[in-house]
Computed example of a mutant assay.
Amino acid sequence: MALKRTSLPRTAEAVALAELRDAIVRGDLAPGTQIRQTAAAQELGLSVIPVREALKTLAGEGIVTYVPQRGYTVTELTPRSVDGIFRIRELLESEAEANAAARLRPEDIAAMRAAVDAQRAATAAADVPAVIAANRGFHFALLARCDNDWLLRFVTQLWEALEPHRALSYRRAAVAGDSARAEAILTEHDGIVTAFEDGAAARALRLLAGHRTQGRADFHRLLGATEPTG
């Protein structure tokens, strides 16, 4: 399952939670994958109890799903659930972006530009984990400037609910040699950061809204639905 024990001075449950979350976000644990508590505990060098508690936390966030007699699996989204997530993202993330845009500093814009460059290099190298990390870095260089902690917490949770499927999408595209959407995402990101560089925050926010709409369509294509259901 590509889990690893870190040397950071954290509780056993915190270690299990961080490593499971990272493996899911990277796509090493793909949607639908069953997570066996005993096997995960052995890989991490932990007892089963902290792994079980970590899985309960992830289940509360919607990242994994618990089914009696089967245990925990990485959550598989449906077109309907994607619509639900993106509807909430439209409400919360647009608010967080507007809040953050008003507080954006030159170094934040520089971080966004650096993330675009890193994503471009990772895309060219077909390095899916690096693409995912750079994509997240781009968006959260902006979102991190939001001064509403609760709003940012909910936005982050929505992002993490989608990350396993985002990783799956990138991996499928890499295997198929399909770079068209990856290049389009880079173009969209470039336009957003250029708008911020130009001091045109309103334009950047409009581009972010369009980027989110396109992302929703991407997830529908991944799940085999040609049109959004809502």
Results as ranks from 00 to 15, higher is better:
114 A>Q: 12
18 A>L: 03
138 F>I: 03
117 D>R: 12
182 A>W: 10
175 V>K: 04
48 V>P: 06
113 R>C: 06
156 T>W: 11
195 A>Y: 01
51 V>N: 13
36 R>C: 01
169 S>E: 05
48 V>I: 14
222 L>N: 09
176 A>Y: 06
85 I>A: 02
155 V>M: 13
127 D>Q: 08
5 R>S: 09
156 T>F: 11
67 V>K: 00
40 A>D: 07
95 E>R: 11
194 T>P: 01
109 I>T: 06
144 A>W: 14
142 L>D: 00
204 A>W: 00
53 E>W: 12
190 D>Y: 07
207 L>K: 08
50 P>D: 01
181 R>D: 15
105 R>L: 10
40 A>I: 04
173 A>M: 12
193 V>Y: 14
128 V>Q: 09
195 A>P: 10
35 I>V: 04
9 P>G: 11
128 V>E: 04
60 G>D: 13
215 G>Y: 01
3 L>V: 14
39 A>N: 11
84 G>N: 15
30 A>R: 06
112 M>W: 03
215 G>Q: 03
162 L>R: 00
20 L>V: 06
224 G>T: 08
75 T>Y: 03
160 E>F: 07
217 A>R: 12
200 A>G: 04
107 E>C: 01
125 A>V: 10
155 V>D: 04
8 L>H: 15
148 N>F: 13
40 A>K: 04
44 L>R: 01
198 D>S: 13
211 H>T: 14
44 L>F: 01
41 A>P: 08
193 V>A: 10
85 I>R: 07
143 L>S: 06
